[in-house]
Amino acid sequence: MAGNDSKDGRRRTGVHNRLPVLRAERGVSRSELAQAVGVNAQTIGFVERGDYGPSLELALRICAYFELPIEAVFSLAPFVPMSAQLYPTRSGEPT
């Protein structure tokens, strides 16, 4: 899988996610999410930073927790910012 190195030399995964946005929107802490899906809170941090690509099982558990389809939470391409989706430019194209 394609990936590049992060600041601390870790191999970044090619999996992008919206976990920080979803957590902030629903007021869920890393610890709460970690407990709900059965992992260490640090692991949620690693997933959010893109330093760790979750297994299919963990990804599905996270999606079940947020009651969202997997493509709404994880993607192989970077997500378009929510502001661009909510407020498209005059031409109708996202910024």
């Binding site: 601390d8 870790r10 802490s29 941090g45 330093d51």
Partner: peptide, 10 residues
């Protein structure tokens, strides 16, 4: 080992 996350509940 990577840097510990200091904003665990962030």
């Amino acid at each position: 080992g990577s840097e510990p996350l200091d904003d665990l509940d962030g």
